[in-house]
Amino acid sequence: MIEFRHVTKTFPQGRSTVTALDDIDLTIAENEMFGIVGESGSGKSTLLRLINHLEAPTSGAVRVDGEDLSALPARAQRERRRRIAMVFQQFNLLANSTVFDNVAMPLRLQGRRERDTVMQMLEFVKMAGHRDKHPSTLSGGEKQRVAIARALANRPRILLCDEPTSALDSGHTEEIMATLDEVRTQFHTTIVLVSHELDVIKSSCDRAAVLEQGRLAALTDVVAPPTRERTGSYADRAREYLA
């Protein structure tokens, strides 16, 4: 469970400050797929980064499973952060490392060499055949799948996704969203999904928060859209949609 209690976050900017988040109150339940939408600069990424404590709140408290990371020493914070994985818009794969080494990284940082876990995660995202390639040879969708495999390697309780499909075309977007849906059902991961693409939120999330200039403008249940056909190639769907 993730709780925001009167969370405000400001950043210094020159002599004044910018308020990125303003008095946010929010509870995200276990195994929920929670969406965060809002315009550029509305504070979506900041909200996400508060959850794994890459940023500390200026005031108020963020608690994960009842624990406030601000209260912990740096070492313990790093330790907790490993249970909260992150998926980025630009994938953030290490360009000089192979697919396998990228996925193995979270484990190696803890001195763990678990080949099987890595291969299992690569199987899960259907990238096992690409394990010896370097990221530059992969498509955007494939890169993001590798990034998801990496995020899962530590068996995280929480998966934070910051615009995971914004750099992808629509075919790859659906593929990634399908993968995230599967992550939730197979691993019971709580997923917090930031996106400005309403379609993406609508198709997968249970609830969503709407941010506006750092304030929580709305908190709403998401009604799933009429089930869309997720099969067929991009060309098939394009023809179907346009004709």
Binding site: N52, L54, R75, Q77, R78, E79, R80, R81, R82, A85, M86, F88, Q90, N92, L94, M105, P106, L109
Partner: peptide, 14 residues
Amino acid sequence: PEQTVELARSLGAN
């Protein structure tokens, strides 16, 4: 890239 540092931090790298 700045994202590499962000990644390291999110993975709890010392």
